[in-house]
């Protein structure tokens, strides 16, 4: 536990000290929220649009931060040789991975809290009714997308390509999943693609809670799909994750 906290503190220091990661990973979803909140107001199907925006940007955040931020961070560290170097110290591998996950989850939670707070303060959004459901949904989403982030880190070959690969996944996925607005009018084949994307289910869950005031357990099937995706990600990560750079 002492080592875990030590490494978590180190990871936080490394994260916030790097301006690119702080802006891209933490701030970007927050800025997007402010931008969209300024442009879109009023109601949609009788519900305040800002509620949709809060839910959508938390969903974008989970993809951007828990998935993308984690994957890029681990690939860069692997290719620099930092992971290999740390492997020869007494820090256990499991502790290292746990701290890296915890560190990115801390960033994601801060980001989520920032969006909630700005929604309330700037756009007068209502607080959600059911905080427990919010916390659990955010937790399940973070866990599933962290596992997928580990899998992506295991599959991405070079740090130069990491950001590009991650964005090619995140942006279309968020768009198709309804993270940037309703998908009801999308062509049928795009909706079929969306049906298999993990973010679709997280959007469904979080929109249900924020917009429709549902409880988390109203959608057990949705949770099951998210958990399944998390398990797939974890399985790929366990099989394919490497500590050493892929030198030619």
């Amino acid at each position: 536990m002492r080592l875990f906290l030590h490494q978590l503190r180190a990871d936080q220091l490394v994260f916030w000290r790097n301006r690119e990661s702080a802006i891209f990973v933490y701030l970007f979803p927050v800025l997007l929220f402010l931008l969209l909140g300024t442009v879109y107001g009023g109601t949609y199907e009788g519900r305040p649009v800002v509620d949709y925006l809060v839910a959508s940007l938390i969903a974008y955040g989970v993809a951007n931060t828990a998935f993308g931020g984690l994957a890029i961070m681990l690939v860069v560290r692997r290719e620099l040789g930092i992971l290999k170097r740390i492997r020869s110290t007494p820090l256990p591998a499991a502790t290292y991975v746990a701290a890296a996950l915890a560190s990115i989850v801390v960033v994601f939670l801060l980001q989520t809290a920032t969006i909630l707070l700005l929604g309330k303060l700037v756009y007068d959004a209502a607080w959600p009714d059911d905080w427990l459901s919010v916390a659990l949904a955010v937790g399940v989403g973070a866990a599933a997308f962290c596992a997928l982030g580990l899998a992506a880190a295991a599959l991405i070959r070079s740090s130069e390509g990491a950001a590009a690969v991650v964005n090619v996944i995140i942006l279309p996925m968020t768009f198709l999943s309804g993270g940037f607005g309703p998908t009801r009018d999308f062509p049928d084949f795009l909706q079929r693609i969306a049906d298999v994307l993990p973010l679709t289910y997280f959007v469904e869950l979080i929109v249900g809670i924020f917009v429709h005031g549902e409880a988390l357990w109203a959608k057990p099937g949705t949770i099951a799909v998210l958990v399944l995706w998390g398990l797939i990600g974890a399985a790929i990560a366990v099989r394919r994750f490497r500590w050493e750079p892929r030198l030619g």
Binding site: V14, N18, L80, I82, K84, R85, S88, P245, L247
Partner: peptide
């Protein structure tokens, strides 16, 4: 074992901003 050894690898970098 790892408490007792020190390693300098042929290639490795550290966190650039620390």
């Amino acid at each position: 074992f790892r408490e007792r050894i020190g390693v300098v690898l042929q290639h490795s970098e550290m966190w650039p901003n620390l």
